[in-house]
Amino acid sequence: MTALPKPQTLSLTVNSKPVSMPVPQGVSMQEFLHEWLGLTGARMGCGQGICNACTVMVEEPGKLPREVRTCITGAHWFEGKTVRTVEGHARQNADGSLTLSPVQQAFVEGFAFQCGYCTPGFVTAATVLIERLRAAPVPREAVERVVSEALDPHICRCTGYVRYHTAVRDLVLATPGLVTA
């Protein structure tokens, strides 16, 4: 029996809130989100970095946002980073109600998901794509391709791919500034 891993302080920003606490070395980011922060939206699917149900957004100043798989990435890798999980996309209003993000709203309106297990990953992927397009718009004819490339790594066992794709494509085309003339 090996000794328990030594705790090491982990400080980062999650969904706009600073977080700092001792976390044993070797804990995955997903375990940390679930067990230490109670954020269970980033789902454990394959645990091997294949299905992408566990992805979160990492936002660094001066850099484009990225999608990172939390099941295969250690919690301490996120030291000092700014992370947005699926819980951090909707906006809470003064009366306690929630306003969904444009991506979440598009998925609801497009009946994009069925069981919903993969949805946090698709929300992350689509949001990262839209943020990247805001920084570097693409021609209209490239939209299908960039949407496919962004969603391609995500696995949906209910095979909701077409509706996810349609929802993201339509949102990209309807949002000003993402597509060049």
Partner: peptide, 14 residues
Amino acid sequence: QATYAGLCAGCHGA
């Protein structure tokens, strides 16, 4: 070791 624990150990083991 910090890099390995962060990026590699998830698949290749601690």
